[in-house]
C-alpha cells in the first residue's frame, strides 16, 4: 500500500492507503474529519468540496494518493484564530443554508470563487457555484451570502493593509 503524507487543517498525517481510497473517505473514515459530507459520489453535487493547496476540489473525485504532499483545508479548518471565516459568517447572516448538508462544500467553493474573482456580480456567483447543488435554499440567499462575504473580505483586506 502506498504511503502518503498530507497536511489537513494544519496537521500533518502519514498513512498507508489503498490506491483506490477516495480522499473524502480518507478524510471521513480515517481521520474522522466528518465535517466534509458525501452527496453524490459522482462529482455532480459538490457537497464534498475541500481546498487542495487553496484551490477547490471535489474530494469524492480525488484519490487519497493524489493528495500526497499536498495541503488540504476542510470546513473544519477554516476558523482563523478561533473566529469564523467571513464566508461562514455570511452564510449564517444571510440565511444561506437550511438543512446544511451542502453548506461545507458551498462555503469552500465560494471561498475559491472569491479567490479567482474578489468582486463577482450575482450572475458570476451563480455561474461560479454551478458545480455545487443545494436542494433547500433556491440559491438566492447563497448568492446574497457570497456577495456579502466578498464585500466584507475586500473591506478587511483594505484595513489590514492600512
Amino acid at each position: 500500500m502506498p504511503r502518503i503524507k498530507v497536511e489537513v487543517d494544519g496537521v500533518t498525517y502519514e498513512d498507508d492507503v489503498e490506491p483506490r481510497l477516495l480522499l473524502v473517505h480518507y478524510l471521513r473514515d480515517r481521520l474522522g474529519k466528518v465535517g466534509t459530507p458525501v452527496g453524490c459520489d459522482t462529482t455532480n453535487c459538490g457537497a464534498c468540496t475541500v481546498l487542495m493547496d487553496g484551490m477547490s476540489v471535489k474530494s469524492c473525485s480525488v484519490l487519497a494518493v493524489q493528495a500526497d504532499t499536498h495541503d488540504i483545508t476542510t470546513i473544519e479548518g477554516l476558523r482563523i484564530n478561533g473566529a469564523l471565516h467571513p464566508m461562514q459568517e455570511a452564510f449564517h447572516s444571510e440565511h444561506g443554508l437550511q438543512c446544511g448538508y451542502c453548506t461545507p462544500g458551498m462555503i469552500m467553493a465560494s471561498i475559491d470563487l472569491l479567490r479567482e474573482n474578489p468582486d463577482p456580480s450575482d450572475e458570476e456567483i451563480r455561474e461560479g457555484l454551478e458545480g455545487n447543488l443545494c436542494r433547500c435554499t433556491g440559491y438566492q440567499n447563497i448568492v446574497r451570502a457570497v456577495r456579502s462575504a466578498a464585500h466584507e473580505m475586500s473591506h478587511s483586506e483594505v484595513t489590514s493593509h492600512d
Binding site: V34, V38, F91, G100
Partner: peptide
C-alpha cells in the same frame, strides 16, 4: 432571528448519520 442551528452546520460540527462510527 438568525438561526441557532447554523453554528454547527457552518463549521462541520454536524452529526449526520453517516458520521457515526
Amino acid at each position: 432571528r438568525k438561526r441557532s442551528e447554523d453554528a454547527r452546520l457552518i463549521t462541520g460540527n454536524t452529526q449526520w448519520t453517516d458520521n457515526i462510527q
